[in-house]
Design a protein around this nucleic acid. Structure first.
Lengths: 125, 125
DNA sequence: TAGGCCTGGTAACGAAAAGAAACCACAAAA
DNA sequence: TTTTGTGGTTTCTTTTCGTTACCAGGCCTA
């Protein structure tokens, strides 16, 4: 399979998917977008995002760190201080992710209208 | 929060996330990419993707249909024939999704190297 | 005529992941 | 002395995922 205008084909999708699944994770996107304006501490991120649990935030940050998108800097004070920031790779990722976010933002009304129409058709049908 | 170079801010993220989470789903991306070259029947998609279960494929297609990205056309023959195709909105979505896929494809080596380095550091530390 | 295959799904069940809440050590503040 | 805050981990519950079996109903084969 070849996607028109895009150079990769299906064979590479297994490896690419491991990257896309990270980006698709809602917590990862939230974290990346917030770190785009500067580094944050663990609880700063938690407070800003609000609805994320500590467990999922730490797992998300570890995943992003493992993939090389986020750096983790520990200051061994009391209480301990941990700062997270985007790496260069993370900043590059911000380009296509931001474009997707902008598209979603621009088309959210169309999507929500489609949802409402679908739900109405289901309820009536 | 304002993302540099992007016009949306955090307040809209709840609604936008409902769109991004759909894109993040690996089955949705697979389906969208395969439908980019033309319409497919249910079992054509199932055979091409290979690893997807019927349950998840039907759930994915219903979600994409609900969001207005995919159209579903039923031909009441025996056996019944159901064709799925991208809508105009689905084709538009292909742009930013393809860009993200290209970025992931171009940077997969960097990501995998970061993963290997992280795993090695964990095993040794 | 009995059995198996094809279609596009749905129902039931076990496994895996996500989410909520409690707990940790330690120090500063109240 | 009780509370607050740090960055998590552990435990338990709920939600989701994946596998398997099953459906109708006409086709083909033996």
């Amino acid at each position: 399979m070849t996607i028109p205008g895009h150079q990769h084909e299906t064979g590479g999708c297994q490896r690419v998917n491991t990257v896309l699944s990270r980006i698709g994770d809602k917590w990862s996107v939230q974290v990346i977008m917030r770190l785009s304006t500067g580094s944050r501490r663990f609880n700063e991120l938690k407070r800003e995002i609000g609805s994320v649990s500590q467990k999922m935030l730490s797992a998300t940050l570890r995943g992003l760190e493992r993939d090389g998108f986020v750096s983790r800097r520990v200051t061994p004070s009391v209480p301990p201080r941990v700062d997270y920031a985007l790496t260069d790779l993370g900043h590059e990722l911000l380009g296509p992710v931001g474009a997707l976010g902008d598209w979603a933002f621009a088309n959210i009304d169309a999507v929500e209208a489609a949802r409402a129409a679908f739900d109405a058709a289901q309820a009536q049908g």
